[in-house]
Amino acid sequence: MNHELNTLTANGVALDSLDRFPSRIGRVFLVDDTEIAVFRTSDNEFYAIENRNPHPKGGPLAEAIVSGRYIYDPLYDWKIDLQTGFVQEPDSGQVQTFRIEVRDDQVILFTK
């Protein structure tokens, strides 16, 4: 990782360079012992959510199918809003979301 960059971003973590994020395919990062799933949508927006399925049986989210700013979870096909973390009707629940930004070709995650 680029330590120099990391120190430049207050409260943020530089995850990886922009070209390492394929469109509409999630990637997983371990930050402060929390698994974060990061998605890049087709219009190049980035979203970060906790990689924990809100379904009672749990499981990951990063392998979901991405459509617009929504994902269809890989295990139970729940539709989840990446921006708010809310599970869409008829199911319910919420996933923790994180602020994420692109700066100078780097994708920065804010955990606080």
């Binding site: 330590h3 990391n6 530089a14 990637r27 930050v31």
Partner: peptide, 18 residues
């Protein structure tokens, strides 16, 4: 290698010191 790391690996970025 690219797909292999993007799809299968959990990356561990270094967390900056506060």
């Amino acid at each position: 290698k690219k797909t292999r790391s993007e799809l299968f690996e959990t990356a561990k970025p270094a967390v900056p010191q506060a």
